[in-house]
Design a protein around this nucleic acid. Sequence first.
RNA 1: GCCAGGGUGGCGAAAUUGGCAGACGCGCCAGACUUAGGAUCUGGUGUCGCAAGACGUGCAGGUUCGAGUCCUGUCCCUGGCACCA
Length: 895
Amino acid sequence: MNERRKPYSFDRFEPKWQAIWDARQPFHAANPGDANFDPGKPKFYVLDMYPYPSGTGLHVGHPEGYTATDIIARYKRMNGFNVLHPMGWDAFGLPAEQYAIKTGQHPAITTRENVAKFKAQLKRIGFSYDWQREINTTAPEYYRWTQWIFLQLYGAWCNPQTQKAEPIATYEGDEPDAVRLAYVADVPVNWCPELGTVLANEEVIDGKSEVGGFPVVRRPMRQWMLRITAFAERLIDELAPLDWPDGIKALQRNWIGRSVGAVVQFRIAEGSAGFRPADSGILAGIPETNGKGARKIPAHANKMSALPQITVFTTRPDTLYGATYLVLSPEHPFVDALSTRENAAAVASYRAEIVSKSDLERTDLAQEKRGVFTGAFAINPANDERIPVWIADYVLMGYGTGAIMAVPAHDERDFEFAQKFQLPIREVVAPEPRSNDGGERPCSSPPLVCMVEPGFAMNSPLIDGLPTEAARNTIIEWLEAQGMGQRTVVYKLRDWLFSRQRYWGEPFPIVWRNGQHEALPEGELPVETPALDDFKPTGTGEPPLAKAKDWVRHSESAMRETNTMPQWAGSCWYYLRFCDPRNEERFVGEQAEQYWMGGGKPGGVDLYVGGTEHAVLHLLYARFWHKVLFDLGYVSKPEPFQRLVNQGIILGEDGQKMSKSRGNVVNPDDVIDQYGADAFRCYEMFMGPLEQMKPWSMKGVEGVARFLARVWRLVMEENQAGDWVLASSVQDIKPEKPLLKVLHATIKKVGEDIETLSFNTAISQMMICVNALTNLPVKPVGSLRTFLILLNPFAPHLTSELWQTLAGPFADGAGEIDAQRWPTHDPQLLVEDEVEIILQVNGKVRDRVRVPLGASDVELERIARANVRIAEFTAGKTIRKVVVIRNKLVNFVAT
RNA sequence: GCCAGGGUGGCGAAAUUGGCAGACGCGCCAGACUUAGGAUCUGGUGUCGCAAGACGUGCAGGUUCGAGUCCUGUCCCUGGCACCA
């Protein structure tokens, strides 16, 4: 593009101002204790979700949220806040490692190159980050503290009495390793042979790896786990006071998946099986503690009685009389022992079939229910009835107790199963209270449909006629009195699988001695990643770090842990490090943490902007770590992020998701080359509401560029040589009232809109203001200056340049524009002395008239009645009613 | 199936407590200035209609003097969860 084509010379002044900002550091925020710290100012912490610096560079989605936060940051600074607005790099992760495997280039090199690229791109957009606070999760100075926090988790437990993390020293039991927040367990994990690593449940989509789409199989392995389930209750409850979108809160609640119900014990009927249940506490998904009551869940429930019992979890204990069979998960440890000789073969072959299936096949909802009878019977504690015990893969080992009581009349899945295998169906809940004619009896004509809704108990002697809620409570009390069950809360949330078999991640600060794990002393941190030439996975599940033989050998008797932490680890606390990024004594200085993460709200970061894709994982994990640190006294607030906003996805021009394969990807660099950074920023904000999904449009960018060019030409004109010089129409005169009015309306609206993140309408209003200014033959310099300040957060380069240009010939423009105070509007100037009111007949607008502001109802009606148009439309009709709304309208109801 | 969000011109979108639907921008049309215009400026632009006027915020009802906005039902789209007992 040649020079003449450029609407204004952004390519000259944008780099100029970026260089000035680099040199003068006007956006550096001082910490408490620093020489130039001003304690009189309130703080504002506005944070972006930091990026993974990929090889492909920024796409237009990144700068959407970044521009929004940049506008807020600049606006808040001009409003007298100390603003913390940092940026860093989430640089551990698979792509760099995959690249290393392919090319042999060390991930550290790839990372350094990518970070440089990203940083250059971000600077080109003119973001006002405090680059002195830049952090990188792969720097040993950073991950030293990630490892330190892990040690806090390892050295803590969650006290069920208080529901709070405490140092492990306060635990009085004899198995500290069973309660640590970081613990080792042999668990069936998502093993991805292709990637040579284990994946978290969240990283597996439809039985395939989220990264790469490779098949994933289940396989038991020794893994590090974090006991996030101990905080399930608080992670739900403490969402309430946060200013997050309701949808995100719902997503988190749903993910945690709290269900209130009861565990119920079913005795195994004598002579029905071999009574050799494996000794095992099997309550996946049930934390050690149980909500408010902090009761110990009977994890040993299955060995409480002399006789073997099957423990089930149900949310509908009121339907106990309708439980006509039990179903165990195929992986349930009792299965072998329960199976009778005649059924053993069928059971074994069914289990073999299930094991061979991928998660994808297994969870396919469309298929018919499958299962086999074990040959065993259990006793329903409510009515002592012998009911058959089946196994079926629709019962998941990972949730509840891995066993259910099937109530086919009132549960869709059980209903479907019972129909397929002709199991009895007994109705025990009626939509209306129903008189009971003599106790329960098997339904002679089983219901054709199952009713899952609450209703009134029937065929259930203990609770007949009671509404579901009351019936539920009565049954639970009865079960508890009998020692056959207990009120219980279970969660879908599982403990967090925290180890990965990867090279490019934080090593664990742990060594193994005589088969026992042990924390390294803090003095040995950071445990640095060993040098390695070959990053390939071992294929056996042993992590690549195991190849660094010298490194692994910590001492004569101790070997290092060779797993690494998942990518989430670094992002669980980066917002804390930003407060005090160079501290070598502590993960964050106390004073800095109290200042930036303090305030009157439960959450420390005032505004956090990022994509919805992190709605559950990152945000849940970070909240969990934060709570642990809070409980242990290291941070001052229980929640990390007070206000959360998700920016919407930007689609390609074709309305499709941007992707290389579709060829609809928009590169920010190209846009900036053509239209400049300010136009790029403003367009991203002008497209539509921040939180909404919206398609890119190059034409739209042009429109916004035109707007900025008009701003440029308000101040500048081309002389005969073709150079831009200060326009002669800019003069130091007093603005007329109409201009003042639109200017002050703009001050008001832009301020309000920035506060509510409605940047699109703020820009609309500024366009209106520019149109008004353009039409004036002489432009008052004071009004132009005020306008430039309003536009500055959106278009910082352009406004800086014009501000500086005006500073020469005119007085009163001291200092850079970003050091100016945000203007306040004068409400007096906005008051109209006349308003236009509309005249309606039967709700239809027939005319409009200008009347003095505040004209009385009587006056308005008089004016309306005298109106010709009104007379025309009411002619021949009777006026039934007149509605007068002051300063708005008069409506005649006529028939 | 469940949860959340959303359906307004040719397009992106605006619209305090219910009170002029379509601000602002794109596109399009016309004009001005120009050797020229893919620059700039001015005016117009929801649909139908020559007009008066009628119609118009996914669809069908309802409340109201008055509904994009409130209520009931329904359809469609996007995102998330999905045999969670």
